[in-house]
Nucleic acid binder design. Structure first.
Lengths: 167, 167
DNA sequence: TAAATGTTTCAATATGTTTTGAAAGTTTAA
DNA sequence: TTAAACTTTCAAAACATATTGAAACATTTA
């Protein structure tokens, strides 16, 4: 396979993966492009490379910066803004895990806690509901704790975690 | 909060969570409904409760059965088919993790392996690309292994994993 | 066998999301 | 201060995905 082909395949694959995980395609593609670029890229570069509009590029760069996985850079003598992706993959994964926990798991836990507070003696259906949602709360909350434990092992967390699990 | 309100809130929340994770809303809602129902439900029951069409119900029930987290049941004397959700939450999580690994992580690994096989000596850009995709392959493959290790601890895997991580 | 009961399929439609591009906004340099 | 260089915003348009519902299909019972 040629470099250009491999590059395009990588960007497409990363984009498709993003969609499956609720991240929009362009956002994932911009991230892919920045990740494999040895040099910071300008907005123009990105637009040109991915053939997308200025507005689209701008909005998705902002979203990536909100996630903390893309950074703005200034080059001396250049008025344009340049962008780079988090280069360390461990760090990248930690940031994504943290954000998803904050944006999705934590709010879900709050809802589960709220609704499992209903009166279970009202009916047997209510009792079953209460039991199930409590069980779910318990599970999700443990899973979230586990996630935190794993990603809090600053360096080389994947390797460290596997080691501990094998012991 | 009243039972009916709590129930509807649960179904809505589960549906929204599903969308964020690339699972369609109705599919997640049907699953939520079955999960909190003490009795198996018929297609009619589901249509009525969620106010959705027969076709939609049928397709999403099939998808849930493909995932192995909803089962078809027959009641003696009844001609209709009834449906139940996997009742054990640990088992539910294991099945979902397994399926996502199979459907998404494994194919991504194959692509990463393919594209990181390019000739890196062609240019410094190609070299950087090769290095990055190799690094990514390495990481994703370790993460997938970790996931497998975690979910292979049949019972109470969440608790077991936390214990090991604390030691 | 035909009628009744039930399920699946799929083209058309509705709904939801992303993308565009031009206008408005911002910053810099002279 | 004004013009030039650049970025952001947002309504409209394009695109993608989910949903409907009626017809086709399957199974059971009489």
């Amino acid at each position: 396979m040629k470099f250009t082909e491999a590059k395009s395949k990588f960007i497409q694959t990363w984009g498709a993966l993003g969609s499956q995980w609720g991240i929009n395609k362009t956002m994932a593609q911009i991230h892919a492009l920045l990740m494999i670029s040895p040099e910071p890229l300008s907005m123009e570069d990105i637009m040109e490379e991915l053939q997308i509009s200025r507005g689209n590029t701008s909005m998705n760069l902002r979203a990536l910066m909100d996630w903390g996985i893309v950074f703005k850079e200034y080059k001396p003598g250049e008025r344009k803004e340049f962008f780079t992706a988090e280069g360390n993959i461990d760090e990248l994964a930690r940031k994504i895990a943290k954000e998803r926990s904050r944006r999705e798991i934590k709010p879900t836990l709050r809802v589960l806690q709220d609704i499992s507070a209903i009166d279970g003696s009202e009916s047997s259906k209510a009792a079953h509901f209460k039991a199930k949602t409590e069980e779910l709360y318990d599970f999700v909350s443990r899973a979230d704790n586990m996630l935190e434990k794993i990603i809090d092992q600053k360096e080389n967390w994947i390797t460290k975690t596997i080691m501990k699990l094998m012991g």
